Simulated scan of single mutants.
Amino acid sequence: MTAVLALGTAPLGNLFTEITDHQAYDTVAAAWRQGVRAFDTAPHYGLGLAERRLGAALRDRPRAGFTVSTKVGRRLEPTGTATGDDLAHGFAVPASHRRVWDFTADGVRRTLEASLERLGLDHVDTVYLHDPDDHAEQAFREGYPALERLRSEGVVGAIGAGMNQSAMLTRFVRDTDVDVVLCAGRYTLLDQSALTDLLPAARERGVAVVVGGPFNSGLLADPRPGSTYDYTAAPPALLDRALRLKATAARHGITLRAAALAYCAAHPAVTTVLVGARSPAEADDCAEQFRTTVPAAFWAELREDGVRGVPGTSEGGT
């Protein structure tokens, strides 16, 4: 199966900096014009703002023509005040709600119901348990069975977990009946750790893998001093590696962005590459880069440099 491009909506929730409703709408519209039909969101992104903006942008689109995934595990509770902001969690929005970790069966249902209301949809196609790193017992004992029930009731189509690590996702693949997992930042040109456990297990079990964070939150999109890696300032050693990768890509007539997306898409377990965009120009660029053909000579050079999972190898795609 050839991997498809999906739009991630954390930037539409004012990740790091504020954007307007109009800009958010135009970003989704640009992705749609580029053929993107899969959209991922979460209550966490801007305290529900991303879900509301995505729902508004998709309202006049044919429901059978797109898929939406959202997440459960962080339940939003009103604070009763809009003073302060949410920048401590990375979002430039008023602190009108607080996040409550809740992987109980009741919490899963309540969180999903609130998401559907914000999205203006009667169902979503996929629901993930969102970052259950420190809540594994409750997520496996209560949250996952709740998702199984929702799936059996037809409330959701597919269920899974989304995390920034591969170890617990591998446990979900091996020990549960998830349909899909979302692995962010652990299968990129700078971090191939998912190759050790998650990707082989998913391929063996027939579980779909969505790769998020193909640019490691920015470094592989535009490596320069001040670039972010996993949402914090990139360490100098990683910045140097990214700059070398950029130079290698340039020698082969492509951008580092195109190489980063193609690397993620090539693995046979990967069905979707998830990229965030905060403007129509970024949405257009992501789609154009995703369509770029990466020359075999580029992959050969990366293979010689010790990058794991390069297309054409036993670990990577064909």
Results as ranks from 00 to 15, higher is better:
residue 1 M to K: 12
residue 1 M to E: 12
residue 2 T to W: 09
residue 3 A to E: 04
residue 7 L to I: 11
residue 9 T to A: 05
residue 15 L to F: 14
residue 18 E to S: 15
residue 21 D to S: 13
residue 21 D to T: 11
residue 21 D to W: 11
residue 22 H to I: 13
residue 22 H to V: 15
residue 23 Q to A: 15
residue 29 A to Y: 10
residue 31 A to D: 05
residue 37 R to E: 06
residue 42 A to W: 01
residue 47 L to E: 09
residue 47 L to H: 13
residue 47 L to K: 11
residue 49 L to Y: 04
residue 49 L to P: 01
residue 65 G to D: 14
residue 71 K to I: 02
residue 71 K to G: 05
residue 74 R to D: 07
residue 75 R to G: 02
residue 79 T to K: 12
residue 83 T to E: 15
residue 88 A to V: 13
residue 90 G to S: 10
residue 95 A to Y: 10
residue 98 R to Q: 14
residue 98 R to L: 13
residue 100 V to Q: 14
residue 100 V to I: 15
residue 104 T to G: 11
residue 107 G to P: 08
residue 107 G to N: 06
residue 108 V to E: 05
residue 109 R to C: 08
residue 110 R to C: 06
residue 112 L to S: 05
residue 112 L to T: 01
residue 112 L to W: 02
residue 118 R to V: 02
residue 119 L to Y: 00
residue 127 V to G: 01
residue 131 D to K: 01
residue 136 A to G: 04
residue 140 F to W: 11
residue 141 R to H: 13
residue 144 Y to Q: 12
residue 150 L to Y: 06
residue 151 R to V: 03
residue 152 S to L: 12
residue 154 G to I: 07
residue 157 G to P: 03
residue 160 G to P: 09
residue 161 A to F: 07
residue 167 A to P: 00
residue 169 L to V: 01
residue 177 D to S: 13
residue 185 G to S: 06
residue 185 G to H: 01
residue 188 T to H: 03
residue 193 S to N: 06
residue 201 A to Y: 04
residue 206 G to H: 07
residue 207 V to M: 05
residue 210 V to N: 00
residue 211 V to L: 11
residue 212 G to H: 00
residue 215 F to D: 02
residue 223 P to C: 08
residue 225 P to E: 09
residue 225 P to Y: 04
residue 227 S to P: 09
residue 228 T to D: 11
residue 242 A to D: 03
residue 248 T to D: 14
residue 250 A to E: 15
residue 254 I to W: 02
residue 254 I to T: 13
residue 255 T to D: 00
residue 257 R to W: 02
residue 258 A to R: 00
residue 259 A to N: 00
residue 262 A to Q: 08
residue 264 C to G: 01
residue 265 A to H: 00
residue 266 A to N: 05
residue 267 H to W: 01
residue 269 A to T: 07
residue 284 D to W: 14
residue 286 C to G: 09
residue 291 R to A: 15
residue 295 P to R: 08
residue 297 A to L: 04
residue 298 F to Q: 03
residue 301 E to M: 07
residue 305 D to N: 13
residue 305 D to R: 15
residue 306 G to F: 07
residue 308 R to S: 14
residue 311 P to W: 10
residue 313 T to E: 09
residue 314 S to F: 11
